[in-house]
Amino acid sequence: MLSAALALSLLLGAALAPVHGIPVTGLAPTLARRQSTGPPWFAAYSDKWVTGAAPSVQDIYGFNVFILSFLMASGAVDQAQNWEELDAATRSTIKSEYAAAGIKLMVSAFGSTDTPTSSGDDPTTTANNIAAWVIEYGVDVDYEDFTAMNLADGTAETWLTTFTQALRAQLPSGQYLITHAPVAPWFCGTTKYASGAYVTVNQNVGSLIDWYNVQFYNQGTSEYTTCTGLLTESSSTWPNSALFQINSNGGKPANTADASNGFMDTATLAGCVQQAQGMGWSGGVMTWEYPDAASPWIEAVRADSWPVSGSPPPPPPPPATTTAASAMPTSTASGGMCGGIAAWTSGVAYVGGDEVTYNGDLWTAKWWTENDLPGGPAGVWTDEGACS
Rank of each mutant, 00 (worst) to 15 (best):
T90E: 15
A54E: 09
S295W: 03
T124G: 10
A267I: 02
A99K: 14
W186F: 13
V139W: 10
S334W: 00
D87W: 05
E84M: 15
P182S: 09
T382F: 02
P40G: 04
T357V: 05
P55W: 11
L362Y: 06
I94V: 15
G196R: 01
D383H: 07
D265L: 00
A132C: 02
P319A: 12
D304T: 10
P172S: 04
D114G: 03
S295G: 10
S241Y: 11
T382A: 03
T332I: 01
P291G: 13
C272L: 08
A5L: 15
G154F: 02
T200R: 13
P18Y: 12
S3C: 07
K252C: 12
E299G: 09
P18R: 13
T221C: 01
Q245S: 11
D304M: 09
P23L: 02
G278W: 08
A259V: 09
A343D: 09
Y290P: 11
A325I: 07
M264E: 02
W367G: 12
P23A: 12
P39T: 13
E233C: 09
S56V: 02
T266C: 03
P314R: 09
D87V: 09
G220Y: 06
Y61R: 02
A342K: 08
T115R: 15
S309C: 06
N129K: 15
C387M: 06
G154M: 00
N240P: 03
Q277M: 14
S326N: 14
G278K: 01
W288P: 09
T158W: 01
D258W: 01
S195P: 00
G379N: 10
S69T: 14
V50W: 03
T126A: 09
T237D: 14
V356D: 05
V273R: 00
P116E: 03
G111E: 12
G375K: 01
T232A: 05
W306E: 11
N255S: 08
T155M: 05
G310Y: 07
L167D: 08
I22Q: 04
T200F: 01
G340P: 00
Y358W: 14
Q81V: 07
G262P: 07
C272A: 09
S388E: 11
T256S: 05
S388D: 14
S195M: 03
